[in-house]
Amino acid sequence: MSQAVPTTPDIDAPEGSRGDDTKAPRRTRSDKAARRLTSKPASIIAICLAVLWTIPTFGLFVTSFRPPTEIRSSGWWTSFFSTDYTLDNYSDALFSGSTSFASYFINSIVITLPAVVMPITIALLAAYAFAWIDFKGRTFLFVAVFALQVVPIQVTLVPLLTQYVDWGIAGSFWPIWLSHTIFALPLAIFLLHNFMKDIPRELVEAARVDGAGHVKIFFVVLMPLLVPAIAAFGIFQFLWVWNDLLVALTFGSAKDVAPMTVRLAELSGSRGASWHLLPAGAFISMIVPVAVFLGLQRYFVRGLLAGSVKG
């Protein structure tokens, strides 16, 4: 839906490209001065709020490096006076038998990659047909696909699970891949269709006159132009699948296929012996999305906006 969102926010726009010189050449010098004047108290409030927002995460981060006995007996803020940090929690969380997050981490990767590639590919084909091939019932079919976005995935879970059990594939990776693919399709098709529609008709017509078939037009003419759209949706879908709990819990709670989120939620509910590994485990699962976020912020925001109504 990025087409429809009123403004393209880029939270990482460089300071210089702000309205100051490009968008509003008429801005006067006194106005700039006024801006600078207001900036000091605003800066202080902004920094205070940002710090306040970060404290919870920072606290858990510090906790994850503290020895188990201290995690259970004192607050993380006391640890600044006794610098007794250790990486043991991380190695324990990853490899010790009670948690073995390493294998759940692998599961997360194994679940996520196909669950991103499959819906994008299928949606690209469908979006191409909806955008550039005339056929009977096209509008109806497209509207139907778009409308199915409103179905919350909760509505589909039980019948799907029954079906997977009947087929004998429950408990493997296949139901998780299939489900994520299905749930992503309406939004992916809608988004990619919008981007394809924006590509000038002459470009496609010219290729057709040259005798290019649909497949050639699709790969040679359209694909290069679609890269930003695919990237935006790809990142959104990646984070959605990586961070998902509901689908994973429903179709993949078995140890062999469960992703990190399932294991973390389970561990969080218990007060067992490995409770102190929770902070380290949480950070292991967060590394990937945070890295994606910091590295690809611009695409990330776009993807997020586009996917914000997803069921």
Partner: peptide, 27 residues
């Protein structure tokens, strides 16, 4: 919008969006 540390502050506030809700709950 009026602060000097705009980009940095925005990144910090926005960060919870990237973390899974499970991670946020544990935090």
């Amino acid at each position: 919008d009026r602060s000097r540390f705009e980009k940095f502050a925005k990144t910090l506030i926005f960060m919870p969006m990237a973390i899974s809700m499970v991670g946020a709950s544990i935090i």
